[in-house]
Design a protein around this nucleic acid. Structure first.
Length: 865
RNA sequence: GCCGGGAUGGCGGAAUUGGUAGACGCGCCGGACUCAAAAUCCGGUAUGGGAAACCAUGUGGGGGUUCGAGUCCCCCCCCCGGCACCA
């Protein structure tokens, strides 16, 4: 073996061997247990960023570990290739999105290969390939036939200058990011998938997802937002019909003092027709983005509509207001306002001087009023006519009954979840496979004519989709006829593609079905790894889509992902200079030199190019805008893939944010180099057979050393397989390496234990630093077998036995001493030994022992005063 | 605003079921080797006091439960992720 650790030479050699052997290509083998390990596929933005490196290293470690357990492991990789950034690149550089995307894919594929990830590249797919999107077009026509697709108008962000729809991300402070024009909310026809038809199942099945983090399940539950209540109709006094609301609190019905509707509500629109003030108010409400986060932060504003309704039980006449905080997208777009018992209604009523009435009184008889704030807790009804003195459920039932009898309400289950808007007015996406006849009748494409191929050689003029100016794309015929037709120019939301790629990886070359029988072997995904930011949207859409596929006979299981691992972000400090006008210019950490004080604290930073100071900013997510990204490629070139892999896994557990440190990367490299040297020194004296229990019999020092080896195997196995805590697994191996380094004995028994210890370290590290481990394994085993398929090390339980244990002795919960005792000492012996300890005796002087708590194997706590 | 998460030395983090707070690594300080540097090795490193033994304090802030709280409960502050057209 090389005396020096030289990853630049080693890694390409090992990778070439894997490639030559096609080591990661897998086929279905019913005789073997399968393991499908999947990481969220990347958007091909140009270069890999650290978030990718982290994500894919976690996946690769798990995949390689499962392979050492003997599983048939599928780990595929592909590209989420449609999306907005390709269009931006097209507009800026006049390069067709397809060209830009494919060259990015080529570069990033090379980076992934250089990192040594064990992907089955024969299964690679890109969502912009017609062979891929053909099937989602086909599936869409199936969903259309099953009435799970429909068309309806919806509000979008409209840029009046660029004459285009904007993504929420493209609306900055209420203005279009390119034009700077105030955006408008505009209604246009859109395509929807009926996800609400699956709301109950999507909610219920969360309880069965034992391998998912509680936080993600809670977020999905709240997102689906199931609530039970009443749909109540308030009669409009102008005779134009009813104003419908949904409420979960019919017990507060007597506290309703006004009604509030969304600005887009028909009642508001009607009122605006003859009233310029209302029309102006609605217009001002329309000058904001569609983002709920933006809407909810707006100052609460409203206006009376000069419309009234009749209270269904009291007959009182209540005013109807339009309010900017009522969302048209939830419920009926109208609410009954109970300012006494709803905080938002309360604040609105205070601002506009509307009456506030208390109709709920806490059961405990506590004196809770509504002078300062709304009382939102449930309690006993009061001021409620015939319905006074009732508990919540009694009041609910009584009032619901009365309203039902009057024909004014019925029970309703309401979801916060809305149907999925899948159409986008964009070019770089999958064409929605429908045509419109001359009289505007909608006809889905026939299966034979699929795919509807997106033209890739396009020129960009302005910002709108080039499809709009392409008669060759638009002009077509009605399927199975010669009648002229017009093609739909909208494309799918890119979440559409990412909702089923996991299934397609099982059979990416299937050209007669969306997925074929091979998916039955591989699905469901055993572990899915990706960013926490996908907790709701992507992961909910994928679950929904999988159920759609199941109901179309394309999947067997109810859920696509058995286990979910959500990784945290990768962060780095920022460096900037602030101009007089407040504009900040950010500098990349690579271009900055930081000076530290004697404690190692960063105190100042200068830009290397001009030597002038820059300010040290907060530690934030690596991003283009903050220019704080560390390019993985630089580090790979400098230290090799294994060091980058080791550091990303060591720096933090997967779920946590990872704060990048260049010097700590150096530490990871040092560790590998040290291990390499240690193995080399051992091998230079000759390779021996690893130790067994017999080797160390009667030799306490070696017995203890061998126990350390097997304790480490047990810990690392638990950390990787159960806890997914790779950082502590690596720390445990580092400790073992430190211990092995200190072994000075050179007799046969000691060398056998050393051999066993080094072999164990290499096997335990193999999933994390596979190239380095490969090199070390070849040196330690002659002849060497394949490390990729070598069985994971086993714990020798007999090596773990201890005859003596150390117990901590506390007095009143404070550690005062440590006593060594036989491992089988009983309660009385432990207590006696603790009290006999000299430190303990000193601390107990003048005090009386009240109680002694013994925790076997851990500690003794003496309670005294 | 709503939903979810987080906060521990100079830094990243460890403490797995309520049981020794700070494993492991980085940084820093001191030493060895060297003509010198790099590399490597050895020692120290939460804070305050002390030569040391040791003592006191200490896990965002305030309160509580417990023999014992970083961990459980209540209140608060700050930071991060998501909020339906970024992916």
């Amino acid at each position: 073996m090389d005396e020096r650790y030289n990853p630049a030479d080693l890694e390409p050699r090992v990778q070439a061997r894997w490639a030559a052997a096609n080591a990661f290509a897998v086929v279905e083998d019913p005789a073997r247990a399968k393991f499908y390990c999947l990481c969220m596929f990347p958007y091909p933005s140009g270069r890999l960023h650290m978030g990718h490196v982290r994500n894919y290293t976690i996946g690769d470690v798990i995949a390689r570990y499962q392979r050492m357990l003997g599983k048939n492991v599928l780990q595929p990789m592909g590209w989420d290739a449609f999306g907005l950034p390709a269009e931006n690149a097209a507009i800026e550089n006049n390069v067709p999105p397809a060209h830009w995307t494919r060259s990015n894919i080529d570069y990033m594929r090379g980076q992934l290969q250089r990192l040594g990830f064990g992907y089955d590249w024969t299964r690679e797919l890109a969502t912009c390939d017609p062979s891929y999107y053909r099937w989602e077009q086909w599936f869409f026509t199936q969903l259309y036939a099953r009435d799970l697709v429909y068309r309806k108008t919806a509000v979008v962000n409209w840029d009046p200058v660029d004459q285009t729809v904007l993504a929420n991300e493209q609306v900055i402070d209420g203005r279009g990011w390119r034009s700077g024009a105030l955006v408008e909310r505009r209604e246009i026809p859109q395509w929807f998938l009926r996800i609400t038809a699956y709301a109950e199942e999507l909610l219920a099945d969360l309880d069965r997802l034992e391998g998912w983090p509680e936080a993600v399940k809670t977020m999905q539950r709240n997102w689906i937002g199931r609530s039970e209540g009443l749909r109540i109709r308030f009669e409009l006094m102008d005779g134009s019909g009813d104003l419908e609301v949904f409420t979960t609190r019919p017990d507060t019905l007597f506290g309703v003092t006004y009604m509030a509707v969304a600005p887009e509500h028909p009642v508001a629109r009607r009122a605006a027709l003859h009233n310029p003030e209302i029309a102006a108010f609605l217009a001002s409400c329309a000058q904001t983005s569609t983002s709920e986060a933006v809407l909810e932060k707006l100052e609460k504003r409203g206006l009376p509509l000069n419309v009234a309704v009749r209270h269904p039980l009291t007959g009182d006449v209540l005013p109807v207001w339009v309010a900017n905080f009522v969302l048209m997208t939830y419920g009926t777009g109208a609410v009954m306002s109970v300012p006494g018992h709803d905080q938002r209604d309360y604040e609105f009523a205070k601002v506009y001087g509307l009456p506030i009435r208390q109709v709920i009184f806490p059961s405990a008889g506590a004196n809770v009023g509504i002078e300062e704030t709304a009382c939102t807790e449930k309690g006993l009804t009061g001021n409620s006519g015939d319905y006074d003195g009732l508990e919540f459920q009694q009041a609910f039932d009584a009032i619901a009954g009365a309203l039902a009898t009057a024909g004014r309400a019925e029970h309703q289950v309401q979801f916060r979840l809305r149907d999925w808007l899948v159409s986008r007015q964009r070019y770089w996406g999958c064409p929605i496979p429908v045509v419109y006849t001359a009289d505007n009748t909608l006809v889905p494409e026939s299966a034979e004519r699929l795919p509807v191929t997106l033209p890739e050689d396009v020129e960009w003029k302005g910002v709108a989709s080039p499809l709009l100016g392409m008669p060759s794309f638009i002009n077509t015929t009605v399927p199975n006829t010669n009648q002229p037709a017009r093609r739909e120019t909208d494309t799918f939301d890119t979440f559409f593609e990412s909702s089923w790629y996991y299934a397609r990886f099982c059979c990416p070359d299937s050209d007669n079905a969306m997925v074929d029988a091979r998916a039955r072997y591989w699905m469901p995904v055993d572990i899915y790894i990706g960013g926490i930011e996908h907790a709701v949207l992507h992961l909910l859409y994928a679950r929904f889509f999988h159920k759609l596929m199941r109901d179309a006979g394309l999947a067997v299981a109810d859920e696509p992902f058995t286990r979910l691992l959500t990784q945290g972000m990768v962060c780095k400090e920022t460096y900037f200079r602030e101009a007089a006008n407040g504009k900040k210019t950010y500098f990349n950490p690579a271009a900055v030199e930081v000076t530290t004080d004697e404690k190692g604290r960063a105190v100042a930073a200068v830009l290397t190019t001009d030597g002038q100071p820059v300010a040290i900013g907060a530690v934030e997510k690596m991003s283009k805008s903050k220019n704080n990204g560390i390019d993985p490629q630089t580090l790979i070139d400098r230290y090799g893939a294994d060091t980058v892999r080791l550091y990303t896994m060591f720096a933090a557990p997967p779920e946590q944010t990872l704060e990048w440190s260049d010097t700590a990367v150096e530490g990871a490299f040092r560790f590998l180099r040290g291990l390499w040297r240690l193995v080399h020194a051992h091998v230079a004296r000759g390779v021996v057979a690893p130790a067994t229990a017999a080797t160390v019999s009667g030799k306490p020092t070696l017995q203890a050393l061998r126990r350390r080896i097997h304790e480490t195997i047990a810990k690392v196995t638990d950390d990787i397989s159960r806890r997914y805590k790779f950082n502590t697994a690596i720390a445990a191996v580092m400790e073992l390496v430190n211990t092995l380094q200190r072994v000075t004995e050179r007799d046969d028994a000691a060398r056998a234990v050393l051999q066993e210890g080094l072999e164990s370290c290499v096997l335990l590290l193999a999933p994390i630093v596979p190239h380095c481990a490969d090199g070390l394994w070849a040196a330690l085993k002659r002849p060497a077998d394949s490390l990729l398929d070598h069985p994971w090390p086993r714990v020798d339980e007999t090596a773990l036995v201890r005859s003596e244990v150390e117990l901590v002795v506390q007095i009143n919960g404070k550690k005062r001493s440590v006593v060594a005792l036989a491992a089988d000492a009983d309660h009385a012996e432990i207590e006696a030994a603790a009290l006999a300890d000299s430190h303990v005796a000193r601390h107990l002087e003048g005090q009386t022992v009240r109680k002694v708590v013994v925790v076997p194997g851990r500690l003794v706590n003496i309670v005294a005063n």
